[in-house]
Design a protein around this nucleic acid. Structure first.
Lengths: 197, 197, 197, 197
DNA sequence: ACTTAACCGAGACGGTACGTCATGTCTTCCA
DNA sequence: TGGAAGACATGACGTACCGTCTCGGTTAAGT
């Protein structure tokens, strides 16, 4: 039942019906279900959307564990790819946007979906600090934001456009080495940042 | 007249009325104005919101021009402070969110407000590259995102919370030097990069 | 429900609200009912008025059957009395007037209410012709109009004024004998035909 | 100016626009005139309609004066013909209907147009009584209504249909001689209508 | 000829009503 | 018992008119 209703909602979205036209009445009609049946399960449209989001949430990526850098690359890549997922992309962006106007629901979404993901990245960063891959004099949160933030900037400024393949790699490299002037006196080829490889 | 209407909308928002309850009828009633008067000026609720956003747009900060670093610090600080603006903060965040569901309007907001701001930062970054303050082997956009992105991460994850005073400074420092392990063998003190001032 | 709405409409009319101020919004408000509830039952204001008219339609009078003349007197009297009906009178006149601007509805009212009434009178007239009470060389319709028409003239020219008690009797008498000069040579009194009763 | 406005109203009516869609705004637009210009001349839509009616009022017919009967025939014929007037007919009927909901205006129309016409017929009837053409024992009003009423019945029951050519003649004849059984030369007291049963 | 008033079109204004739609609650009736 | 069906009160939607009101821009007369 629950499924039938969510499927109906998705079906409508995929038909091109804009999110703002997704009334409960319409979903009920499409699902061949009484309105009351929907209200019995969700307190409102937005709560239904939340479940709809969870429906599409891709699984967390499996981390290689070879190094903090590699793990972070994997995580950033999963962020990038999520932005490309066929059905989701634009649709889900709008769902999220809509849901943001319901603080309670957004809070729950953040708590159960966004925050855990952030926590996972943070854990990797902390491990990287412990292993000497990251500077120990910086807060893990700062390092995390320095890596993930640039990723989001792309989607803000180029909505709809696919993120470049090497974006994760380039962000990681730049963030690790810094964007300040290269220490020229150093003659070393510097290839990978950690010299004693 | 236009002002009176926008003021009425803001007044309602400040009374705690949620954005979703901001019907045109209500705004008109509050402003003591006929509905037609609103429709004569804006094609719909969201277009009105766009003007409401512009209303609160703070002026662009004046750049010191002493160095790219100082200019960027000023720009990041203005981003931070904008998040604290008394009336706006949470309210405007919601307005933006709402408006995102109207692609046309959002596109215009981006074009006339967001993009120019980004362009200003990018110009500073380019100058910094030319002056040798930033690595020349990186795209200006990447450097820009590396600095601005982390700023936004804060507001995403801690909505409503004020951004720490030294956030801009810490982001700049970390981004310039990189978050990879410090090149310890180097004995030079390399003086912590002086902040703006 | 239907009743409650019609009652509300009548209540407003009786309060002296002019028909032109009888908006559906107002009726709904007075009846404590949503607008949709009204639109679910009637396609518009005028259709509602039609039901309002039917509400007040008095029952057809019972005919004595003693003679065509007596039956017609009864029918004319019922026309006269209908003009005096307490609540209706002026109000209903206006309702009818209003409804006339909706050809379809007026057609229906005529078909279901007016025409049957006319047919009933015509039937009596035809019987009267067959029985020799009326001239056989005249069309029944002409005779009918000659009797009913004068009745209506009164209401046209003296709106609101009550019709005189003996109007039906006087019309009948005059129509039967004709308004031309009396055939003087005839000395017979020919006793004005005693009315019903 | 006044004319231009009335013409515009008529033009719209003749285009088939229903009376209910004849807003002042529309008339003003069609006439190429400001709304205020209309309001300066008429207090409202219905008052304008009144002038519109007067516009179409045909001239009173010229009476032959040969006899009351002939004069009345002429008057009845003019009533009949008025119902056929090309532009007016249905349109004007609706205008009248509409105007009836404004008691004041209707009263004025009645006083200045309808009543004088009735008075003219009544005068002829009175003359007919004096000349012995009509029974002297009947009120002139009754005789008048007996002649004019049947005329109106036709338009009530067959709206739009043209009135038959000989209608006036037939009404006059029937009314003068009466619709009761003809006083056959038969000397018998006429007891049962069909003698040779 | 120059001013000044009247009048014009245009259309904005605060309102009210239109008829439609969606909300969330509530029966009703069927399986 | 629980679900579909949908009626219900509420209220926003965007449009159209209402009747009043400024606006400038002609005209016209009066000086």
């Amino acid at each position: 039942m629950e499924r039938a209703i969510l499927e109906a909602a998705v079906a409508l979205l995929e038909e091109g019906i804009p999110l703002s036209a997704l009334s409960i009445e319409r979903i009920a009609r499409t699902a061949g279900v009484g309105k009351a049946t929907i209200y019995r399960r969700w307190p409102g449209k937005e709560a239904l959307f939340l479940d709809l989001l969870r429906e599409f949430e891709p699984p967390d990526p499996e981390l290689p564990g070879t190094s903090a850098r590699d793990d972070l690359w994997t995580l950033l890549e999963s962020v990038r790819r999520r932005g490309l997922a066929q059905r989701s992309s634009v649709i889900l962006h709008n769902v999220i946007v809509e849901m943001k106007s319901h603080p309670t629901l957004w809070e729950e979404y953040h708590r159960t979906v966004v925050a855990p993901r952030r926590e996972a990245t943070l854990a990797v960063v902390r491990r990287g600090i412990a292993d000497g891959e990251f500077r120990a004099d910086l807060e893990p949160e700062l390092i995390n934001d320095l890596l993930v933030g640039p990723m989001l900037m792309h989607t803000v400024h180029r909505p709809g456009a696919p993120l470049p393949d090497d974006l994760a790699e380039r962000i990681l490299a730049a963030a690790l080495q810094g964007v300040g002037p290269r220490p020229q006196p150093d003659p070393r080829p510097e290839a990978t940042p950690h010299p004693a490889g």
